[in-house]
């Protein structure tokens, strides 16, 4: 074997400042500029599978569609169940299938924005993939990020996924009608969220019986 060692003057470092998230962030800024131009507010809903993102969006659409334009983007790895459910409400729906992707990104959302008439939508609700880590790293151009957690995810849900909450503005604690049955304290979950981020808005809801949905709608209208 011939061993060859490079001399020190043949090895050198060069600075190569290059952000690996910049490509997505740039597209997110473009999405935001396009939305702002039309006076449209996009809201990104993140949370685990089964936390109630689709049900919450359904209730919000029912509540808001008669007073302002609403469109919905449903991110899903494979199925179109969620988009089918929302479409029955008669609002524009874009199904974004990420196939193997664990998060929506600004490129996919940008493509979706070109498929609808943005000027007719006051709100675009974007349902992210049911994943609690990956979506946090990829801004989409939304004005606010909402995390939906439910009491059925157990008492330590917030502590187990702190990162998701640090970049969010609103937290919805859903399925509070099941809190007693689950032995989960809604108060303790709210305290956990505020320990992580004191200025975050926390709204307890039961999308099943409608509790708190008005408060979520009012919070979004005030953004």
């Amino acid at each position: 074997m011939i061993k060859l060692e490079a001399q020190p003057d043949e090895i050198y470092d060069i600075e190569l400042e290059h952000s690996l998230l910049e490509a997505n962030e740039k597209l997110a800024r473009q999405n935001r500029a396009l939305l702002d131009e039309h006076g449209t507010t996009a809201i990104d809903f993140m949370g685990a599978i089964g936390s109630g993102k689709t049900t919450l969006i359904t209730k919000l659409v029912e509540k808001l569609k008669n007073q302002c334009g609403v469109a919905v983007f449903n991110g899903d790895a494979t199925t179109s169940e969620d988009a089918d459910q929302i479409e029955k409400l008669g609002v524009p729906v874009v199904q974004i299938a990420t196939i193997n992707g664990c998060h929506l990104d600004a490129n996919l959302v940008g493509k979706g924005l070109r498929k609808i008439d943005i000027s007719k939508a006051k709100f675009i609700f974007i349902e992210n993939i049911g994943n609690l880590i990956c979506p946090a790293e990829f801004p989409l151009g939304s004005k606010a990020r909402v995390v939906v957690v439910s009491v059925t995810e157990g008492p330590w849900m917030v502590r187990k996924h702190p990162h998701m909450f640090l970049g969010a503005q609103i937290v919805v604690i859903n399925k509070i009608d099941l809190a007693d049955a689950m032995g989960v304290s809604v108060e303790a979950l709210i305290n956990d969220v505020h320990t992580l981020k004191p200025d975050i808005t926390v709204i307890p809801t039961s999308c099943k019986n409608g509790t708190g949905v008005d408060a979520v709608a009012q919070t979004l209208l005030a953004i």
Binding site: I2, I11, H18
Partner: peptide, 19 residues
């Protein structure tokens, strides 16, 4: 929030002796 390439270390194969 950083996630960036800062620098790369290179071997100049042009000036390095060939085998």
């Amino acid at each position: 929030h950083e996630c960036a390439i800062k620098s790369v270390r290179l071997l100049d194969t042009h000036t390095a002796p060939s085998v």
